[in-house]
């Protein structure tokens, strides 16, 4: 991937889940980078801040999605990057507080996800 090309960052700890989602997004032409937890995601974003969208899982080891969100929002360089949460958690009271641009409960309709992503990237 060249410098300063916009990409979608997938933050998901399960390798197969990462890969399957990456294939869906790459299949419609989006460059994708994967991170296995919140910490790796922050490192990636600091290296290459040109992410047009973050696809964020919640339950991950080392740094989960809630903590990542908190740190992302505290960092002015990263706070404005749109984030869609993708999680198996159905309870709305466990979702991160406000202002994610979308919430997809697994298993989700991949076509609907593509359409939502197309409005952002």
């Amino acid at each position: 991937m060249t410098l300063q090309e916009e990409y979608i960052l997938i933050v998901e700890d399960d390798p197969d889940s990462q890969d399957a989602l990456a294939m869906v997004l790459e299949g419609v032409g989006h460059p994708v980078v994967c991170a296995s937890n919140g910490r790796e995601a922050l490192e990636q974003l600091h290296r290459e801040p040109e992410a047009c969208l973050i696809m964020l899982d919640l339950m991950m080891p080392e740094m989960d999605g809630w903590e990542f969100r908190r740190l992302q929002k505290d960092d002015p360089k990263l706070a404005q990057i749109p984030t869609i949460v993708v999680s198996a958690l159905g309870d709305s009271d466990k979702r991160p507080n406000g202002d994610v641009v979308g919430y997809f409960t697994k298993p989700f309709d991949a076509q609907k996800l593509i359409e939502a992503v197309a409005k952002i990237c």
């Binding site: 399960d14 197969d16 889940s17 399957a20 989602l21 294939m23 869906v24 299949g27 198996a88 958690l89 159905g90 409960t105 697994k106 298993p107 989700f108 991949a110 076509q111």
Partner: peptide, 21 residues
């Protein structure tokens, strides 16, 4: 339910790709 949703979702996405590739 949560644990089974994860692999189901991954399978779902992979099937989606199979249909399009």
């Amino acid at each position: 339910g949560h644990e089974l949703r994860n692999p189901l979702n991954t399978i779902n996405n992979a099937v989606f790709t199979l249909k399009r590739t």
